[in-house]
Computed example of a mutant assay.
Amino acid sequence: MMPGVETIRNVVADLRLAASFVTILPVASSKPAGDGAIARATWALPVAGLLVGLAGALVYKVAIHVGLTPNLAALLALATTTLITGALHEDGLADTADGLGGGRTRERKLEIMRDSRIGTYGVCALIMSFGLRWSALAAIANPWAVTLALCAAHTAARAGVPAFMSLVPPARPDGLSASAGAPPGRSVAIAFGVGTLVLALTLGPAKALVGLILLALAGLLLARLAIRQIGGQTGDILGAFEQTSEILILLVAASFLSGR
């Protein structure tokens, strides 16, 4: 088989694996998920995020076209992205809030995070997440600007995940994060490059820089909190990182794109 053909097949397999990892779309890759395959495919996470953002943007545009208000259209767009991802990241955010906020010891915090039941901290975190994202999209209002904002948010929010996985050790030897493994430097660099490029194209270089600074600060704060309280990161922590990043980029977008 020609090297170029094999490279294309690997890229497609990584894209399918990344999409199946963070969405409920029936695109499971034939590439084995073991032996570090998930870690290597993390470069494609922002690409999968871009597709999620485009789906939400399409629903928003259709909702506005049929006469719905920006508030209702924004809610439908959020419902779409949540449905496509199977609320994976929202679940991680809620579990992280419950575990870090409700447990007294490291063991108890990890136990709470594995509990499928949701607590007060988790409910409050989800209300804040949906409220801030909904308000940001409704404030932007213009369908084209909302498209740019959703693409920027969903791409950039996942672009930092490989770096977070690489720099912050797993909190426990089992679980989703530990089984995925640490992404190689190449995957981290590509994901960061894709996220930065999409941010610059959608929000402009200056706003993209603001967004990157905020994402870096959020990542550092969450990493410090996770290491101090539970000894590292878990799949839930990664979900919380994605949600925090998504919120920050939408707020940056709302600051610059509102009313356009």
Rank of each mutant, 00 (worst) to 15 (best):
L221V: 13
S116R: 10
T196V: 15
R172C: 03
T81F: 09
R133L: 06
G49T: 03
L217S: 14
G103N: 00
L215F: 09
G122K: 05
A200V: 11
S177V: 12
S29Y: 02
A226P: 05
Q229F: 01
I190V: 11
T105K: 03
L209K: 00
A240P: 02
Y121K: 00
K31P: 01
T155L: 03
A33W: 10
V62K: 00
L221T: 11
L72W: 13
T81M: 13
E246Y: 05
V47H: 04
L72D: 14
R40G: 12
Y121R: 00
G193T: 13
P169A: 01
L257T: 13
P26Q: 09
A37P: 09
L78Y: 10
A97C: 04
P32G: 01
F164G: 13
A73N: 09
I118C: 02
L83G: 10
W144G: 00
R260G: 09
A28M: 08
A156S: 09
A28I: 07
T202G: 02
T202Y: 01
D14C: 12
I8L: 12
F192H: 14
A63S: 13
N10D: 14
P143D: 03
V11D: 01
A39D: 06
K207A: 09
A77E: 09
F256K: 10
F130C: 09
K207Y: 03
A223R: 13
T196K: 13
A223P: 13
S166G: 15
D115I: 10
A37T: 12
M128P: 05
L215E: 07
A171Y: 00
T234Y: 02
P162I: 04
I112T: 03
D236W: 04
P205F: 00
M128A: 14
P3W: 13
I213P: 12
V11P: 01
S135K: 07
L93Q: 14
A178Q: 13
E111L: 06
A28C: 06
V168M: 05
G119A: 02
A206G: 03
S166A: 15
L75G: 15
R104P: 05
L76Q: 11
A156I: 06
A141L: 05
F256H: 15
G101W: 08
L58Y: 08
A178L: 12
P169E: 00
A200H: 04
T244P: 09
